[in-house]
Design a protein around this nucleic acid. Sequence first.
DNA 1: GATTATTGGATAGCGTCGCTATCCATGCTT
DNA 2: AAGCATGGATAGCGACGCTATCCAATAATC
Lengths: 221, 221
Amino acid sequence: MRLAELSERSGVSTATIKYYLREGLLQPGRRVSATQAEYDGAHLRRLRLVRALIQLGKVPVATAREVIAAAEDESLDHHLRLGAATWALPHGPEPGEGDPEADAAGRTVAELLEHIGWQFGQEAGELSPAYRKLVTAVAALRRLDYPCDVAHLLPYARLAARLAVTDMDLVEEQPTEAGQIEAAVALTVLYEPVLLSLRRLAHAEESARRFTDGGTGGGEV
Amino acid sequence: MRLAELSERSGVSTATIKYYLREGLLQPGRRVSATQAEYDGAHLRRLRLVRALIQLGKVPVATAREVIAAAEDESLDHHLRLGAATWALPHGPEPGEGDPEADAAGRTVAELLEHIGWQFGQEAGELSPAYRKLVTAVAALRRLDYPCDVAHLLPYARLAARLAVTDMDLVEEQPTEAGQIEAAVALTVLYEPVLLSLRRLAHAEESARRFTDGGTGGGEV
DNA sequence: GATTATTGGATAGCGTCGCTATCCATGCTT
DNA sequence: AAGCATGGATAGCGACGCTATCCAATAATC
């Protein structure tokens, strides 16, 4: 198919597709002459993935490029590629060096991970983006005087562990290895809005149950 | 304290504080003369909250203003204010009207909520932002051919319900009503990075357990 | 009391990001 | 042969979150 058709079928303007091509988010089409290129279903699929990552997942364009590059790097093995892909995801502000709150948060997180037996927060001595983001968030909560110690975080960590099992079950449903890598990236990012939305809906339910009289009259899960 | 001290104690530049004042994210200080205003601990605390919402929670400035206004609107009761505050949170792209995938996603979500017995996804006939975001995300996943039906979503919904219980327990730890409202906003937004980070760390663990030989040799949760 | 420094307020501008509009030579289509 | 679509390059736009500069009024200091 031509660029125009790719655009029509994906709902993305040709100008934007050209932009993604320029930015390396999309492989160039198979050149068929000096002024025409041919795109196929793989391009369409990839384009939809990129769009979803950027629009829904709010992944910056530059980051999306790195994630996709990592997912396609065939020099890595399965597990590593999976990690590498998510490794490139947004960094956010650094925890801050001399800040005592940040240090305390760092210790809390380390204690939490040790307590729950996780070992993959770091690699080659460097902390993962997720690890650092966690430290930053905990530090912010502590600065606001919200309780945020191991005891409070543990339930969240346990729930996260169960989430990961569900997520990985979904990944393993994919038949091919390439499919699994793509699924890992897509599901990691695209289930985030799903999860956060469900959490907010659940908040509304739980709030109603606790703070309105009469309650909802049932609805056991 | 003066603006300069507020700046120093919060780590936010005076220029930025003035910007927040202009945008209505912060109450003006108590005017003490024509050229000076006095700020107190409440301002400092609020400033830290605003900063955390914007930097960590990635909440747009305009949205943060609405959220805070809703949280302070004393004409609403407890439960409503809690909902109103989160109601104002980011909207994202609309599900799209004539799109068949979006319609299918909408039906899936409605079925899911009915199945699990949630009733607070809408109010006065309008769908909540969380509900719409969920529909959009499900539609995107379906467009990528990822399985995303009630059966797949149900485990996430159940986990979300348990998250909400944990969250609300934390909210109820706050002694005052105003504190609970603020906590609801802060914890809704600021636990999102915590949760997502933990999920990614858990992914690394689960991936290692499944895809590397030898595994981690223990670490039961 | 004169001088210097600081304050808060207003305004305009900057840097990044994700596109988008315009132009152009080529060459496919009819 | 005529006309139009294609892909590539370039410059610009609109939103966002600040930030730099200026200013008159006042506080602090000598």
